[in-house]
Structure formats: C-alpha cells, structure tokens
C-alpha cells in the first residue's frame, strides 16, 4: 500500500485520520462537561503537587545536589512538558492490551487507516492538557530565572530538547504497547519508565548514584530527555564526564528510539495477525 501512495501521502493520510478520531473523542468528552473540567483541574493539580514538593524542599535548603531552585525547576518543567506532550498525543497506545483482550482491535483492523494511528488516538484524553499546561508554566518560569546568555543556538537547544524528549517518551509508550501484543497486562512496565522516569528526571543527576545515571544514559536513554541538554544550557558538567558533543545527541537518540519502536510495533502487529489473540 505504501508504494502506490507515496510516503508523504501516507503520512498525510495518517495525520488526517488521527485528527478525525481525536475530534470524535474530544466531542465525546465534552458531552460530560463537568466531569471533564474536574478531571482537567485534578490532573493539573496532581502534577502541580510534584513541583510543590520541590518548593517545600527549597524552603529548607538552598541547593539540591549543587543546583538552585530555578535550575531544578528547569529540569522539572522540561521533563514534565516532554512527558505531557507524549502522553497527550499518544499516551493511550497503552490501552492496546485491553483492545487485544476484548477483541475490539479487529474493528480497527478493518478500517482504511493505519492501526497505530487509530490506537494512538483511541480515547484521546483532553484532560491531559491540564498536566501539560502546568508543566509549561513551571518551565516558562524557570527559563526566565536561570542564568543563561540567550543565543539563537540555545533557543534551538531548548526546542530540540523538548521535542526529542517527547519523542523519547513516545517511543517508550509505543515499545510498551508493542510488547502488549504478546503480554496484554504489561502496561505497568512502560509506566515505570515514562511516569517513573519523569519523577527521576525532575531532580539533578548529581543526587543519584552514578550507576543509575549510567543506566539512564546508555540503557534507557532518559538522560537525553532533559539532563544532558539542560546541563549544557546551564553550563554544567554531567556527572559521568561524557564528551561535550553527547549533550547534543538528543534528536539522534530520539530518532533511533522511534525507529526501534516502529520496528517493534510492526513485529507485534505481524505477530497478532498471524497468531490471533
């Protein structure tokens, strides 16, 4: 099918289908308006509390692992923004397992749209805008307070950091979902890397054991979500003493992760179609 359409047309087709389905879910959500408002506010408040924890900590201390409040806020805001973006756009791929279990994945397979797009848009949760907005407020505040000589290059670095961060989280969501083609109850495994990873990335790497930082760099490359680019932005060295160019590898790491996730998804879908559920 890809050959006859051309890749660009296929992507356009996929994005269009995604937006169509998202619009349906948004309208479904808005039929329960009060419930939506409560959920969105609750979502923002819930993730806001994480930052309040850090504020409380800084009411007793001045630095955490050598980082001041604006710097920690930058880590918090950047990680939460990247996760919020990924979670909003395709966090619901994790529902794949339940679709496999109850057989409703078959309904998606007989529609003329890519299955991944349909699963990513499935039950699109507009309430997650609350969390994203809260994260962006923290990030915005931090960016005005940290000591940075702003150059065009550094602005690009921040934008690249957020986009690659979202892509890395998105890839982890997708890898987790692909795994659910085989093990339908595995949603919590990927959550420990996404939500759990976010909880870790809010703090400076210097407060963690080196082995953990190593793992977060080379095994599950969460360090590229915000640690490495943010340290570069703030002019600090990373605790592992990696060469300077590594700090700019975020987009490359994100691309590799997305490629890997795409392959895993395809393998999972192929497996499903040859074995059923």
């Amino acid at each position: 099918m890809a050959e006859s359409f051309g890749r660009a047309a296929l992507v356009r087709h996929g994005v269009r289908a995604y937006l169509l389905i998202v619009a349906m879910w948004v309208r479904s959500t808005l039929t329960y308006r009060a419930s939506f408002v409560i959920m969105a506010v609750g979502n923002a408040a819930g993730s806001g509390l994480e930052f309040v924890t850090i504020l409380l900590m800084f009411s007793h201390i001045d630095t955490l692992g050598g980082f001041g409040l604006p710097e920690v806020a930058l880590l918090c805001g950047s990680s939460a923004t990247a996760l919020g973006l990924a979670d909003l756009l395709l966090g619901n791929v994790e529902r794949l397992g339940s679709r496999v279990r109850d057989g409703t994945l078959d309904i998606l397979l007989v529609r003329p749209a890519p299955v991944y797009v349909q699963v990513a848009a499935d039950r699109f949760a507009l309430r997650r805008v609350g969390r994203l907005a809260q994260a962006m407020v923290v990030l915005g505040w931090a960016l005005t307070r940290v000591q940075v000589d702003w150059t065009p290059g550094r602005v690009v670095l921040v934008a690249a950091m957020l986009l690659s961060g979202a892509a890395i989280f998105g890839a982890i969501f997708t890898l987790g979902a692909a795994f659910q083609f085989w093990a339908q109850d595995a949603a919590q495994v990927q959550n420990s890397f996404t939500y759990g990873g976010n909880a870790m990335l809010q703090y400076p790497p210097s407060v963690f054991a080196k082995d953990l930082v190593r793992g977060a760099t080379f095994v599950v490359p969460l360090a590229f979500v915000n640690w490495l680019p943010a340290l570069r932005l703030m002019g600090r060295d990373d605790p592992l003493g990696l060469p300077g160019w590594v700090d700019f590898m975020g987009p490359v790491v994100a691309a590799v992760m997305c490629g890997g996730a795409a392959l895993a998804w395809r393998a999972g879908l192929r497996g499903y179609r040859s074995t059923g559920s």
Binding site: M1, S4, M24, R27, S28, T31, Y32, G103, T104, D106, I107, L109, V110, R111, P112, A113, P114
Partner: peptide, 27 residues
C-alpha cells in the same frame, strides 16, 4: 493490502459495535 481492501468492504461484527457510544448516531 488490508487498508486498500478496507475501502471496498463493509464488516459488521454482531457483538462489537463500531458506533461512538456517547455521540449521536449521525456523528
């Protein structure tokens, strides 16, 4: 050619609806 064929076929699974639960049928 699953997606290509999808445009040319209709499928009704008796026990699984393809309709949108909370929206008017027309939607």
């Amino acid at each position: 050619e699953r997606t290509g064929l999808a445009r040319r076929m209709g499928v009704v699974f008796g026990q699984r609806t393809t309709l949108w639960w909370d929206l008017p049928l027309r939607d």
